[in-house]
C-alpha cells in the first residue's frame, strides 16, 4: 500500500465523487459499473477507466468484496507484551518467526508490542501464545474480541 500522501491536484472532483460514492457500496448486478456510474453522470467505460487510474495512482487499497475472516473459519486474537527495551529486537525476531503472527506493531506504552494471532482453530491461539511465552519468558496478554461493532468509517475524499 502506498504510504505517501497524494498531491491535492492528483484527484479531480469526479475522482473524489467516485471515492466517496463507492465507499458506500457497489451493485451486485450484471452491469454494476454502468449502474454505479449513472448517479455520478459517468458512462460504464469512463467509470472503469477512472477506477483503473485511481488504482494505479495508489488512491485505492481495495475494490471488491470485504470478507469477515472469522466467518470463514479460523480464530484471531489480539495479544500484547511488555518487552524490555534492551531485548526488543530479539523478541521481535522470536515473535515474528511464528507464521501465526499476522501483524505486529510497536506502540508507545508499557505494553509496547501488539500483534494479532491468526490460526485455523481456537486451540491454535492458545498453543502459539504459550509457545511465545516459553520462548521469550514474557507474559502474552490475550485480548480476544468479545464483540465487534458495525463500523461507520469513511474517508472524505
Amino acid at each position: 500500500m502506498r504510504r505517501e500522501v497524494l498531491p491535492p491536484e492528483a484527484l479531480d472532483a469526479t475522482d473524489r465523487a467516485i471515492l466517496n460514492a463507492l465507499q458506500e457500496g457497489f451493485p451486485l448486478t450484471p452491469h454494476p459499473f454502468a449502474d454505479a456510474g449513472k448517479p455520478l453522470g459517468l458512462s460504464e467505460d469512463d467509470l472503469i477507466a477512472r477506477i483503473q487510474n485511481l488504482r494505479e495512482e495508489g488512491a485505492i487499497t481495495r475494490f471488491g468484496p470485504f470478507f469477515d475472516a472469522e466467518a470463514m473459519g479460523g480464530a484471531f486474537c489480539l495479544c500484547a507484551m511488555a518487552v524490555p527495551g534492551d531485548r526488543f529486537d530479539a523478541v521481535v525476531t522470536l515473535v515474528n518467526a511464528h507464521p501465526e503472527v499476522a501483524h505486529n506493531y510497536e506502540r508507545a506504552h508499557r505494553l509496547n508490542m501488539w500483534f494479532v494471532l491468526a490460526t485455523d482453530t481456537p486451540a491454535g491461539i492458545e498453543k502459539t501464545a504459550r509457545a511465545i511465552e516459553k520462548e521469550t519468558g514474557l507474559k502474552v496478554l490475550r485480548f480476544p474480541k468479545l464483540k465487534e461493532f458495525f463500523i461507520g468509517f469513511r474517508v472524505k475524499a
Binding site: 505517501e4 500522501v5 488512491a59 485505492i60 475494490f63 469477515d68
Partner: peptide
C-alpha cells in the same frame, strides 16, 4: 461479506 465496495487509501488521501 461485510460489503462490496471501494476502499480508498486513507493514507494517500
Amino acid at each position: 461479506i461485510r460489503r462490496i465496495a471501494l476502499a480508498p487509501n486513507h493514507y494517500a488521501l
